[in-house]
Write a protein that binds this DNA or RNA. Structure first.
Lengths: 207, 207
DNA sequence: GGTTTAATTAGGAGATACCCTGAAAATTAT
DNA sequence: ATAATTTTCAGGGTATCTCCTAATTAAACC
């Protein structure tokens, strides 16, 4: 396993080496793990969906802008909070970034304490998002143990049907439905319909 | 009933009368109902929690800023989307506003079509929020028909307990629990435990 | 004081869910 | 082709839920 899946790291992507190094110095002094990158590609190649931490990136870079990077990152690892920095940004850009789900958008230069506060907040956000995602993945895994038929039955159970109604609906005996029901409860490791409902709703809070 | 609870209105709060009038002219020409206010207090006094529409407000005003107004409005009517305008705003202000839940933050001047697009989007957002809120309120009303004891029983049902377990937990007979259960189903107008779970989870998606 | 509401308990009947054993046909995987 | 999985059906027993009637007690309301 990669170490970045266990420990939170502050990823700094900026072509301004002087700035990057000053951030590295600052974060190291407060015991925050940090990694520097000169370009977006370099960073993207180094992380995966399990990577934990947050991203501090400048909007203005040679090949890819911070906003573009954020878009790609959303696909690759939606849990990593993004803080965008700018030296000469405009309001429209800031607003667009915030709408795109950026955690923060700040102007260079900023004082050390503000940066540390922001990053700690970002890491907390990542912590939550990561937990939430793992939790959902675990639930998904449990539901994916079900066969397609069992999933059909599950939907009808969640909808509030009795075994008899489900059997009629699927054109099978209610005795068969009973078997499916038992397998569903067994595979998902729930002891009651209530727990089953919670499991389903934790994944799909809609309907 | 007030008419603003039925029809969506674009509320414009700006001390720049010339600008306001031009907005009124524009919106009227595309059949969007519009009301103008010179100050925040005037606007706040005129709306209630059932008011539908959206708010277009300048950040810079004599008595109360657009951001302050947005804060107060969140208490009074959280469903009204807010679009903040500024002539000379800075990035920090824009970011703060977005974090506070402002729908949009735009710089004056802007072209007519952009304004109309923004407002239509805001009205759609309000439409959704309003529906969602009414839906939740209706569910709340149904649950509030329950007595405190019935709510206790409800919680234990949702937790997955059987009548017998609930009775033991509350120190009462399972026969009594049976009665409570029946009343709960009757008052909330659900036909199955599944529907009951949906009702509860629609209100409190947590736990 | 009388009435209503809330909370409690009980018995019994029918429906449903839950659990077990047993088994066969259909599909899929190796 | 053989093995494993999936889907199907059934009987029987127990527990639980649902619905009915009936009744008592306590508190709140008029």
């Amino acid at each position: 396993m990669r170490d970045d899946a266990l420990e939170q790291i502050v990823y700094v992507v900026d072509d301004d080496i002087e700035f990057s190094e000053s951030v590295r110095f600052l974060l190291t002094s407060v015991n925050l793990p940090v990694k520097l990158y000169h370009g977006a590609e370099e960073f993207l190649a180094d992380i995966g969906p399990e990577t934990k931490g947050c991203l501090l990136v400048d909007v203005r870079m040679p090949e890819m802008s911070g906003l573009q990077l954020q878009h790609i990152l959303k696909e690759k690892n939606p849990d990593l909070p993004v803080i965008i920095m700018t030296a000469h940004g405009d309001i429209d850009m800031a607003v667009r970034a915030m709408k795109d789900g950026v955690l923060d958008f700040v102007q260079k230069p900023f004082n050390d304490q503000k940066l540390i506060d922001m990053l700690n907040k970002a890491l907390k956000t990542n912590e939550r998002a990561s937990r939430q995602r793992q939790h959902k993945a675990a639930l998904h895994d449990r539901l994916n143990l079900l066969t397609s038929r069992e999933k059909e039955v599950l939907d009808l159970i969640v909808a509030g049907n009795t075994n008899k109604e489900i059997g009629y609906h699927l054109g099978i005996s209610d005795k068969t439905v009973e078997v499916h029901r038992a397998r569903i409860m067994e595979k998902t490791m729930v002891r009651s319909v209530q727990e089953l409902m919670k499991l389903v709703f934790d994944i799909a809070p809609d309907r």
